[in-house]
Design a protein around this nucleic acid. Structure first.
Lengths: 338, 338
DNA sequence: GGCGGGTTTTGGAGCGCTCCAACGAGCGTA
DNA sequence: TACGCTCGTTGGAGCGCTCCAAAACCCGCC
């Protein structure tokens, strides 16, 4: 006689019983072992279906050597550059059966000391740090780690895959110089990437015999910072005909500042962003920008991760991809006809 | 004699040994039990620090009844409305010691059948579905589930927390009518939310004795769709003085289309978005929009989740929050002086 | 019909933790 | 001095799985 049964979740034993096989065989089927007869496999799958069985990730992790998961630490969900990174990563990792877990730095800050802690507790097989690494990031040796998109702030033993920000900013600046601009300002923000971009800008300016002019907003790299920095630049250096922003979001702010002052883009003011984030290609911005090749960084990061997980002992030398200028509608020769 | 030791991760036993206590006591300390003497607590914490011990989430999950984690399923990382939702959720959940795991629908689609599967395998304590629910979403009964931001597509037994899209669109339309606009177009897209917004728009138009005019882009709700729809609208109905878009992203496209046609916003064309996403408040857009109160949806979702986790048997009735119009710079009376 | 070799299937031993019942120590009270 | 309580602490059992060595099975061939 069956009384009200407690709604316990089915385990691998339940599946084994209803399929008439051993729990080990069920495990084999679930993990796609080739050495299982077709008949048994079908029986197990049917039992799984019938019971609505879901394997317990926790038990699998505890018993097995690996979690088949890599953790990705990002800065802030609003910084869209990570989306392409994730895509590249995902495409490189999925064929190997690895999944991705994403943790946001700012959001999780309240719960745990660091999203890293969460991932380490989770026993991820690898880690991608898509944040500016800080000194506090001590990870156990032997854990494959790739720092993606940032060159600065060393995580010991980690691979580094990034684009050459200095080169990218230099190229963008040269693009403006090539168009005939002489008074080119740069809107900078906080962080190592912004600093490298500022250096690239300064180098290109100096090489062209021009005077660099770097302005910051409130110290970050938001749209507001871009706006404030652009306002300062346009007010203090009215002859400016072109602006290079530290990223696309700041460029958006610069566009707003230009619009307010009645400056048409690109006729009166050329604006260049950085990152080629999704907003850059909108009809509204048509932003000339620098493709930081996030998807490819993700792909290479995936490769590095796989190599390390596969047993490769140490980190490969840092890889700096060459960024690529994407010319859209926000740049033109100075004084170009409307 | 110690030979090269295998770099095994320290376990709770290692901590217990170096602290000179039992593993149970270590567990107690780790979980913040009040009934532990200060001396032992300090000793354990010191041992944890010394060994660099990280508790195994897997073991804790397997042994304990709960994971202290709720899963959030989102659509696409590019849809920024979820950021505020996450924040509200996080603030409501963190005090209870619950953490959040986020999975993206489109990204994970390659690895597993559905991010839900991942969460179910993970044995989350609750689930927030911030996606349009589909019929395929069958979750085990007893698992607290909240559908956030969408009213349509039922998940059996789930709580529903959303804003009233119909009401919001209606209010936005009335705002435009109140400003004196008569020819107001609506840019719609795919999905239930868009349909409800279109209904609200149509209702307001009809109530005001005006003729609704609904245009779609390519069927989705991207910037491109907004652009295409706006182009169609402006070309087929040249007298249009105001546009309500199904969301902020589409509004961005509309802004671009207006700009291309030499229409100034808001003097020649008023544009209203929907969602009050981060882009709406930028200097560049200054978009009048409808605050869909994502953070509060998150907060309420957190409450519902806590109630269900706390043992409340069934779902509460669906809650429809009243959205709020956020008036910024993209709307004005028709023909207003520049 | 029995044997060797390969393939398929199985039970047992843990993984690292939480939960629980029980234990010891200290202390107030009879 | 003995007793009962409480507080702090402990060992054992078990969560659901994977891994491993060994058992069972199958086949062809002598």
């Amino acid at each position: 006689m069956v009384t009200s049964d407690p709604p316990r979740r089915p385990t691998i034993y339940d599946v084994a019983r209803t399929a008439g096989v051993s729990k080990s065989l069920v495990s084999l089927v679930l993990r796609g072992s080739p050495s299982v007869s077709e008949a048994r496999r079908a029986a197990v799958l049917a039992a799984v279906e019938e019971l609505g069985y879901r394997p317990s990730q926790a038990a699998a992790t505890l018993a097995g050597a690996t979690t088949r998961t890599v953790g990705v630490v990002i800065d802030d969900y609003r910084n869209l550059w990570f989306v392409e990174l994730l895509r590249g990563l995902q495409e490189g990792l999925a064929p190997h059966g690895l999944r991705i877990a994403v943790a946001d730095h700012t959001l999780n800050a309240h719960v745990e000391a660091h999203p890293l802690d969460g991932f380490l507790s989770m026993r991820v097989d690898g880690l991608v740090i898509a944040t500016e690494p800080t000194a506090a990031m001590r990870v156990p040796e032997g854990l494959p780690v790739v720092v993606a998109g940032h060159r600065e702030g060393v995580v010991p033993g980690a691979d580094v895959v990034a684009t050459d920000d200095r080169l990218g900013a230099r190229g963008a600046t040269e693009h403006l110089v090539g168009l005939g601009h002489r008074r080119i300002g740069h809107l900078t923000g906080g962080g190592g990437a912004a600093r490298l971009r500022a250096e690239g800008y300064a180098a290109a300016m100096t090489a062209a015999g021009l005077e660099p002019l770097v302005v910051a907003g409130h110290g970050a790299t938001t749209e507001e910072d871009g706006y404030v920095a652009a306002v300062r630049l346009l007010d203090t250096a009215p002859g400016t005909t072109a602006v290079l922003a530290a990223n696309d979001t700041m460029a958006m702010g610069a566009l707003a500042a230009a619009g307010e002052r009645g400056l048409r883009v690109p006729q009166d003011l050329s604006v260049v962003g950085y990152d080629d984030s999704p907003i850059a290609s909108t009809h509204l911005l048509r932003l000339t920008t620098v493709d930081s090749r996030s998807a490819q960084i993700g792909a290479v990061a995936a490769e590095r991760l796989m190599a390390r997980i596969g047993g490769s002992p140490g980190a490969a030398p840092p890889l700096l991809l060459a960024p690529e200028l994407v010319v859209r509608g926000s740049t033109a020769a100075p004084g170009a006809a409307g």
